[in-house]
Design a protein around this nucleic acid. Sequence first.
RNA 1: GCCCGAGUGGCGGAAUGGCAGACGCGGUGGACUCAAAAUCCACUGAUGGCAACAUCGUGGGGGUUCAAGUCCCCCCUCGGGCACCA
Length: 800
Amino acid sequence: MQRYDFKSIEKKWRKNWKDSPIQQNTSSKPKYYCLDMFPYPSGTSLHVGHWRGYVLSDVLSRHKVLQGHHVLHPMGWDAFGLAAETNAIKKAIHPAISTEENVASMKRQLNEMSTIYDWDFEINTTDPAYYKWTQWIFARMFEHGLAYEQEMPLNWCPNCKVVLANEEAVGGVCERCKQPSTKKNLRQWMLRITKYAERLLQDLNQLNWPEKVKKMQTDWIGKSHGAEIDFAVAGSNAKIKAFTTRPDTLCGATFMVLAPEHPLVAQLTAAPQQAQVEAYVKRSATRSNVDRMQDKEKTGVFIGTNATNPLTGQDMPIWVADYVLADYGTGAIMCVPAHDERDFEFATKFGLPIVQVISADGKQSPLDEAFIGDGVLINSDKFNGMAVAEAQAAVAAHLEAQGIGKTTVNYKLRDWVFSRQRYWGEPIPIIHCESCGPVVVPDKDLPVMLPDVESYMPTDTGDSPLAAMADWVNVPCPKCGQAAQRETNTMPQWAGSSWYFLRYPDVNNDNALASPDALKNWLPVDYYVGGIEHAVLHLLYARFYTKFLYDIGVVTFEEPFSTLFNIGMINYNGRKMSKGEGHGVSPDDVLPRYGCDALRLYEMFISPPEMDCEWDDSGIEGVSRFLNKLWRMVEAPHIIATNPELTRQKHLMIHDISQRLDNMSLNTVVSGFMTHVNAMQDLAKTHGGLPADNLEALAILLAPFAPHMAEEIWERLGHKESVFLQTWPKYDAAMLKSDTVELALQINGKLRGNIEVPADMGKDDIIAAAREQLADKLDGMEIVKSIYVPGRIVNFVVKG
RNA sequence: GCCCGAGUGGCGGAAUGGCAGACGCGGUGGACUCAAAAUCCACUGAUGGCAACAUCGUGGGGGUUCAAGUCCCCCCUCGGGCACCA
């Protein structure tokens, strides 16, 4: 018995596909743009966890080809950024060289997996011809006031020696190295993503994305409705602006708290309190974000000055405390201890007055914790008796009439810290001139090439390594010609990946990031496959970029990715696979033993594609055995004429596989192949062979999953053209029906037997037959009710 | 603390409210073989029974229903997200 020789067969078809690609450039077919999140080549090889997504997108792409689409399924390299730079530093080679090596290695792997990536459409974010356009987009953002410089306390990772965007410092921890971040005052380039907050929120509705990702983005954007209120300060002209979502509780506001970084702290602090306040502010500034978050008890200092409650006229002592965040709302809050847990805790600790203004039953009652629930207003003068919702509008309207408040909305989303103090990134195309200020590099001078430096190591000072390159830094101002200096910070890794999907259809264009025709023909992306880890990073940034490019007329759509699929992670021995730590399974080890088809099939069989799962070395044995079994079935050269039973089997198979594929239940597609091949084998035994018809259908269905074997089967059946030039088979619903059906027989819902009846038998006859069959068990029982579910069960409800 | 998910054999997992455990891994026994590999056949949720079969069984407790892994309520455990956002 000949074992399936995957080595030579897979090699043969890889060569054939290279010589005559399975897709011609046929623009008459409907387009399908299927995209993977491109890898960052920080290590030399991909592990089987990465492959899960790449196999999935390849399966979908090949399926679409068979369904008559013209498919764009490209691949590229997100090669700038910290990961690549860190890897290069570790190996003590220039990041450009290590990146190139890693790209070559990963590309070899992708080709060995027989992915249908068309390398004519390859991109690399570190290619000057590519980053020219990354810089071009930045230039447009600068011109439109979306890119600006600011000195502010930013998340700083002392380990990576780099500032972090809020999205990269979640939980006060560096997204990359997981070390605690601190705050550092630095001049940075910022992108005004907050200007797009509302659109980024609203347009989520139109996306066919996992609800989980939409929810994560919604929470990240964090919209809340409320009012902004001006509080007068005793003995000062200054006003403190505070945002609140509960204007209805204003009469219960008994004190105010300013964030330590609030600009009015210094100005409003009374002389006797000065030393204490300064010490507190200084202490807050130096603590790490993790420490601040882990505080169990609230801390704060009275600044010695009072504000006035605009409704009650009462004094409100002003405190400074770090539980108020400087960069949300106005950095100052009115505190209503009776109805806010944090304010309650603070007031209790420092002995501040607590005044109840909301009550569930309209009566005042002693509070031993903040009352958050709904109710009516009390202790609130003319607002007494109003319901919360009503009072929110009424108080806001009252304040607005007085000119001391207005209704407003707030977002948690912050502007995007866009500069990095690192070498391996796109230079920011700005020249600093003493007379003209920051001047954007003219388009004709793009790209601003990343220069070769002697030392690309990060510095402790927060300066980019580029700052030491006097020759590169010192240039004339493009506006006035005076001596000026280049911006030495570089862009974050996200810059190149925020628009790369626009470039693929037109990778060689030197006059535009892509031609309008190419964009019109291919965008937006129909199907986007990648991990959940980019839910609020890359996916939010890419949406922002797309909306901006829409606004300036570069693209004609507002959302880049119509459908998103989150591929689950594959763990190994209970831990995440990682190329850095060498913990994982390499396809390089699997391919020589089992072949590409088996690995592809196993990647899909391992678990539902959206779920995390565990790699099992022996699991691939199963699919490998299946392929061999299938091969033996095909090799048995008994082609017979079709007959109804085998025709029905064919339609059942087409139905099952097609439907499961449409539902993205790819693990059950694979088990479906196994079940149907087993069934065909049984039928082959009874009928002395199989019709060509059945095998042809099987070959086409299998082609997206195990393309080499599918081609080989197809060829053996006497076809000269590739199986991928065929059409996905259709099933006839009428053919799925069987002559007989088996029904389960139940008494009071418990299984008591089975019965096979003709498919066209009527309800009454079936119930009678079922009664007959269960006669001994029904003896002496009174049948209260007979339930018949066609094709499924007969259930007798009995008494006695 | 808040917000999402998810809990099914030894394992991965399957199941439009309708026969729980498809398919695969692993295991046991057998066939073939000098032997092994490969392959094929049978069995493989638990308990009781020689057996036919019976009882129990989808994290726990209630409920709806002729019928619940699936729907509703409460609880437990695990995973993920956010975390003083006023």
